[in-house]
Design a protein around this nucleic acid. Structure first.
Lengths: 125, 125
DNA sequence: CTTCTAATTGAAACGGTTTTTCAATAGCGG
DNA sequence: CCGCTATTGAAAAACCGTTTCAATTAGAAG
């Protein structure tokens, strides 16, 4: 991965492990990321996540359960969270791509988050 | 306030204090709420906030700084967060009121959150 | 390939926040 | 008013993330 190098940081195995962990799943908690990075200290995981989020390579999510979650900032999408089972899914069609700038006058919009809560198909029965 | 009673909970002075604190400001942190509830133990504040959020009377916000914030769930609005100074403002015109249900098929939408990040007027200069 | 140096790692200690426990208190139905 | 049960709050515990600092290592330079 040259992404890290390109930003002026060293490409250590620990950092690559965290990036691979993020690439192998979606909206993962710190626990989940750590489980996919055996041998990497938790301190390094926190630091790497901060680094990635700070440089825009990753994104931090707050989906309402208090647990921060992380994902690579590859595409723009939003989350559907089931209030019953906690399942998280995603949808790509952002309903306000071109709609937002007009709403927010006197504010220079950089990005937005949208999370939709409700009941997933399985829990509706 | 009969709202609490109506839900089957006792209307204690502590709970009323927390509700009044929430009513006197917007998107407040636990610290701010506690400051407005002198004499109320922090444990009770946490428990009351959980109670209010669980019963739908209040809402918990995660605005990206890790600090949870709370507000009464009276009206539907969204937040503008300045990435430079951290100021939080609000806007009422929800750009996706009637747009959402169609987007999310096989998912029964209950509510949604939208947070817009960027630069406020003062920080743009 | 070897050397050198500054960036990086990780164990331990720390600090702040939230939860659990449990005895004491108090709301409210009867 | 009484009495039962929900609620409170102090203390302790659990949890989460950060800081510190000595040891290690990536990567540039020779």
């Amino acid at each position: 991965m040259g992404k890290i190098r390109g930003l002026g940081y060293r490409a250590t195995p620990q950092r690559l492990a965290v990036i691979e962990a993020l690439a192998s799943g979606r909206h993962q908690s710190v626990d989940e990321i750590q489980a996919r990075c055996p041998g990497v200290g938790i301190v390094t995981i926190y630091r790497t996540l901060d680094l990635l989020c700070g440089s825009g390579l990753a994104r931090r999510l707050d989906l309402g359960d208090g647990k921060p979650r992380y994902e690579l900032a590859e595409d723009h999408h939003h989350h559907l969270i089931c209030q019953s089972c906690g399942a998280i899914s995603e949808f790509e069609d952002c309903p306000l791509e071109e709609r937002l700038p007009r709403e927010a006058s006197d504010f220079e919009v950089s990005f937005h988050r949208l999370e939709v809560y409700g009941l997933c198909g399985g829990c509706r029965g």
